[in-house]
Design a protein around this nucleic acid. Structure first.
Length: 220
DNA sequence: GCCACCGGTGGC
DNA sequence: GCCACCGGTGGC
């Protein structure tokens, strides 16, 4: 009788998978798969898991029988070269809201250590945290985790976010990206690249200059 | 009353 | 025809 519980990397830490072979009856030889939560609760089907885990874990691509996430269906899994990265991406895929929380408060800055201006974001945030920071990181994680277009929430979510909010879309009113937006953003990226290039050049020159002075002093 | 285990069936 | 899902029940 095969009755070994094993870890299940596709689920949060502490979850175990068990496969039980039927010993008798018409279905002898077939097997049943069960999952156990960290607290020991037993689950007999995927719908049951989904009901329990709710929005905490995205089980759309989770195969109940094998215990694995079906490969190639998320941008995260396609982009991840190593198993470590894949696991980390998988955790974030399962918990986009936690990721947004972790990144919240971080901000880019330039060489003068002055905080850069935040991006222009879609108006009318939907959900519990209407801040621009939260929305920015929600958009960033949506871009990373999905190959689908990022378009914001449906009008239903606006009426009742508690029921209709779509976790794979950022929490803002539906928006569209125009050619004008793309051109403006290209200019921003171009300016940022040139600033970086100048900063690196200045740094390299300073290092060469410093080394030269040092060598001259040693020689003298 | 609980639960491990197998049967039944609806959806594909 | 297969199988995921869940109902039912026998054994404790």
């Amino acid at each position: 009788m095969e009755k070994r519980r094993s870890d299940c990397p596709a689920l949060p830490p502490g979850w175990k998978k068990e496969e039980v072979i039927r010993k008798s009856g018409l279905s002898a030889g077939k097997s049943d798969v069960y999952y156990y939560s960290p607290s020991g609760k037993k689950f007999r089907s995927k719908p049951q898991l989904v009901r329990f885990l709710g929005n905490a874990v995205d089980l759309s691509y989770f195969d109940f029988r094998t215990g694995k996430t079906i490969a190639g269906n998320t941008r995260a899994s396609r982009d991840s070269a190593t198993s470590h990265t894949a696991r980390r991406a998988s955790i974030y895929h399962n918990k986009p809201l936690f990721w947004e929380k972790r990144l919240k408060g971080l901000r880019s800055s330039d060489v003068t250590e002055e905080s850069l201006r935040a991006m222009d974001l879609p108006r009318a945030c939907i959900g519990p945290d209407p801040s621009e920071d939260c929305l920015l990181w929600a958009i960033a994680s949506a871009l990373h985790l999905s190959s689908a277009p990022i378009s914001g929430q449906s009008t239903s979510a606006e009426k009742n976010p508690g029921v209709w909010i779509n976790a794979s879309q950022p929490p803002c009113r539906s928006f569209s990206v125009t050619e004008q937006h793309i051109r403006e953003q290209e200019l921003v990226v171009d300016r940022a690249r040139r600033s970086l290039e100048e900063a690196l050049t200045a740094d390299t020159l300073a290092r060469i200059w410093g080394s030269t002075v040092f060598l001259c002093l040693v020689a003298a």
